[in-house]
């Protein structure tokens, strides 16, 4: 029963159910949306379980890496969040998780997204393009200086805002491309895999 044919029909049923919302909200859409919530959580949890097995449980129990019992216990404690009374038990595990992540993000961001970006903006101002690039970067960076309320600064910040609007507009235009692709992907599934049509043409 669990073969590709039944699978394709099921997938088509689910796909069309979600698209049916575009006409009107309806029970079919709601059913599929709720299946999505269940499936997404199921996938997350199964993958989490698999990962714990691969990265920690097997190395700890079979290869004698006993130090890995520490994160296994800390991880299991996280589930005390489900109880109001014992929620505090999970806090140290959460603290460890957030502390390590914050530390790597903070140190990484300063190098990759601050100093490297500032250095890349130090460009020779010998062409129109470079000058435009430089001015927009500097002005838009000034836009994020909130405590500066001097009169002379406001045209610079305005310029920066225009620069960001160009960037946002271009990103919007690009995202249109993204979204059409995602839709095309579903159409290719419906037309070619489900209905088994073949592209003809000139």
């Amino acid at each position: 029963m669990l073969n590709a044919t039944t699978g394709t029909w099921l997938a088509a049923f689910l796909t069309l159910g979600l698209f049916s919302w575009m006409y009107k909200e309806n029970p079919w859409f709601r059913l599929v949306e709720h299946i999505y919530v269940g499936a997404a959580l199921g996938v997350l949890a199964s993958q989490g379980y698999q990962s714990v097995m691969d990265i920690a449980w097997k190395p700890a129990t079979q290869q004698g890496k006993t130090l890995l019992y520490v994160p296994l216990i800390l991880g299991a404690l996280l589930f005390s969040r489900w109880s109001k009374k014992y929620m505090w038990v999970s806090r140290s595990s959460m603290g460890f998780l957030v502390g390590t992540l914050s530390a790597v993000v903070m140190t990484g961001a300063i190098k990759a997204q601050l100093t490297a970006q500032v250095a890349a903006t130090m460009m020779p101002l010998n062409s129109a393009n470079n000058i435009i690039f430089f001015v927009i970067t500097a002005a838009a960076t000034m836009y994020f200086v909130f405590t500066l309320q001097a009169k002379w600064a406001s045209p610079i910040m305005d310029l920066g805002k225009y620069g960001m609007m160009i960037a946002f507009g271009a990103t919007f235009g690009n995202t249109v491309m993204s979204r059409i692709s995602l839709f095309t992907g579903r159409l290719q599934f419906l037309l070619f895999q489900w209905l088994k049509l073949t592209p003809g043409g000139s």
Partner: peptide
């Protein structure tokens, strides 16, 4: 894309990275 967009996004990147830090 190469000039104003990249320049504008660089400022957004710097701003966002400062918030992250």
């Amino acid at each position: 894309w190469n000039i104003p967009t990249t320049a504008g996004m660089r400022a957004v990147t710097i701003g966002a990275a400062l918030s992250v830090v």
